[in-house]
Amino acid sequence: MSIQQYGKRRVIIDEAALSLAPGEREISVHSLISELGRMAETGSSDKRLTEISEARCWLKSLHEPGQA
């Protein structure tokens, strides 16, 4: 993964976390995946939807056995 891809993923995940924080909702892998799903439903551009999808896939991989 390139540094640019990592940076984009981090920005998207940070955005999801910031949207959860004001409501004092738990910030976990599961809640971030759910929030990213809501973000994708807002009618974003194809590029943004791709970035959200990549971030969700990465977060989901954290739940798989053998992943750090």
Results as ranks from 00 to 15, higher is better:
61 S>G: 14
45 S>W: 04
66 G>D: 07
44 S>A: 15
31 S>I: 01
23 G>Q: 14
6 Y>H: 11
47 K>N: 09
64 E>M: 11
3 I>Q: 13
27 I>L: 02
43 G>W: 03
40 A>S: 11
44 S>G: 14
47 K>D: 08
26 E>M: 07
49 L>C: 12
17 A>F: 03
17 A>Y: 05
47 K>L: 08
30 H>N: 05
59 L>I: 02
21 A>R: 12
32 L>I: 03
31 S>R: 08
34 S>A: 15
45 S>R: 06
18 L>P: 03
54 E>Y: 05
52 I>R: 08
51 E>S: 11
48 R>N: 05
8 K>H: 03
57 C>A: 12
56 R>Y: 01
40 A>W: 00
14 D>Q: 14
22 P>M: 05
6 Y>I: 06
16 A>L: 02
25 R>L: 14
19 S>N: 15
32 L>A: 04
60 K>A: 02
52 I>V: 09
28 S>N: 04
5 Q>K: 09
8 K>C: 04
68 A>Q: 14
11 V>T: 15
27 I>T: 03
17 A>S: 11
45 S>Q: 08
65 P>W: 07
31 S>G: 04
14 D>Y: 10
8 K>Q: 08
68 A>W: 09
62 L>Q: 09
32 L>Q: 02
20 L>E: 10
29 V>H: 01
38 R>T: 07
59 L>Y: 00
44 S>Y: 13
34 S>E: 15
46 D>F: 00
49 L>P: 05
7 G>R: 10
42 T>F: 06
38 R>W: 06
33 I>A: 06
15 E>G: 09
40 A>G: 09
1 M>P: 08
53 S>H: 09
32 L>P: 01
39 M>G: 00
46 D>N: 06
60 K>M: 09
61 S>C: 04
11 V>N: 14
46 D>S: 05
6 Y>D: 11
35 E>F: 01
51 E>D: 13
67 Q>Y: 10
39 M>K: 03
40 A>R: 10
59 L>K: 01
7 G>T: 10
47 K>G: 05
47 K>R: 09
22 P>V: 03
65 P>I: 08
50 T>S: 14
42 T>V: 13
46 D>H: 05
56 R>H: 04
64 E>R: 15
7 G>M: 11
9 R>V: 00
47 K>F: 06
52 I>G: 09
54 E>S: 10
10 R>Q: 07
19 S>G: 07
43 G>Q: 06
61 S>M: 10
15 E>V: 01
5 Q>L: 03
49 L>V: 04
11 V>M: 15
59 L>M: 00
8 K>F: 03
44 S>H: 15
23 G>P: 13
22 P>I: 02
63 H>A: 12
49 L>R: 12
26 E>D: 12
47 K>V: 03
66 G>L: 11
52 I>D: 08
5 Q>F: 00
11 V>A: 15
60 K>G: 09
33 I>W: 00
10 R>Y: 01
57 C>L: 13
15 E>Q: 11
48 R>G: 01
48 R>Q: 04
17 A>K: 09
40 A>Y: 01
28 S>Y: 02
25 R>C: 11
64 E>D: 12
51 E>R: 06
48 R>P: 01
25 R>N: 13
10 R>P: 01
